[in-house]
Design a protein around this nucleic acid. Structure first.
Lengths: 190, 190
DNA sequence: CCATCCGCTTAACATACATCAAGCATTTGA
DNA sequence: TCAAATGCTTGATGTATGTTAAGCGGATGG
């Protein structure tokens, strides 16, 4: 049941069996169906979620009612409204299942206690946020300096599994271009 | 001498005087003149830097020889090639002084030891990276979804001190537009 | 002190992408 | 089962930004 997430964590820190138990003790399983919302604006965000199975997206809806996809998540990824989760502010994002999904939620307060008892978990999550930080920096450079075509090719190379599972109009949204433009780009590639 | 950085840290965590001493013990002052490089590609990056006084930029030079400014830093900001610093990989960025500057460098190995001795410093730097993460997310949304004009106005509002100190062609570069376009945008605004 | 460079602006033209509109195949669900 | 919704494509046209070229005032340095 928990072997997947424990393997995932063991890639970065090594855990004894009592530490594993203490960690899995604060996890709670959550199942969510396609199109259901895990988080919506205004929610208090107490948890971040590890994806055991499925596919989700986090997106921001602007004042004009336009959605902007910030993140996809599939197996072995983490998702939440991280700003709200870290800062304790109300959610500004929607997190929605693209497929039926199984998640493991971690409660923030329990996690803070765990950090105090076993500091290497604070290390693990610092590593995670650091990697996410670097990925965001790369994405900013791409979005500022590359054409839609270049960004699409980069996306396909970086996230081939996601490209296969998510409809093109959502990929276009993530890339910051219109579906019509993505369609033309794809036509050009063949 | 160290009161500025101690005040800065005390905004997020509270420190006893021995903790302050232990922290300042691992700092090393560094002065750097305008146009000098603090970091260049290939360097081993052992330190991150707190800006006591001055103004710097971090930028990436792509294969075509084009520079892309990732970050500016002025008083009370942190700067480095964070990817290289966190991961121990060779630097990919240039970090260069825009004005004569005074910095406080923190050595990574000494910092890791400090984390073990006084875990709240790990908390402090986790908060820092979290805030940086959120700022990057905001910047991605802007870069993907907003016009150059909107991004410029946002920049002026968010970083008014930087807008005053940095030449327009460098701001244009940071915003991902050409100086000619920024000039037209500015003309339009008056 | 004067030549050079730097930072900024403007203009004419090119290009990438958006917008608006329509059509079509596949999937969905009453 | 069949109508509606969904996801994708294509065409005509508009717009923001890039490209190329030129000029200008002020700072800089020999």
């Amino acid at each position: 049941m928990y072997s997947q997430i424990l393997d995932h964590i063991s890639k970065d820190i090594s855990l004894g069996s009592s530490e594993k138990e203490e960690f899995t003790g604060i996890l709670s399983e959550k199942k969510i169906l396609k199109k259901e919302l895990l988080i919506k604006p205004g929610d208090k965000v107490d948890s971040e979620y590890y994806v055991v199975k499925g596919c989700l997206k986090a997106y921001y809806r602007d004042q004009a009612g336009e959605d902007h996809i910030i993140q996809f998540a599939i197996e072995d990824w983490w998702i939440s409204d991280f700003e709200a989760f870290f800062r304790g502010t109300p959610a500004e994002l929607y997190v929605e299942a693209i497929e039926d999904s199984v998640l493991l939620g971690i409660d923030k307060a329990a996690l803070e206690l765990l950090y105090q008892r076993i500091p290497k978990f604070e290390r693990f999550f610092r590593l995670k946020i650091t990697n996410a930080f670097v990925a965001l920096r790369t994405r900013i450079l791409s979005s500022l300096q590359k054409t839609g075509k270049e960004r699409y090719l980069e996306f396909c190379q970086t996230y081939p599994q996601i490209e296969k599972r998510v409809p093109n109009y959502q990929i276009a949204n993530y890339l910051g271009i219109k579906p019509e433009s993505l369609s033309r780009i794809r036509k050009d590639l063949t």
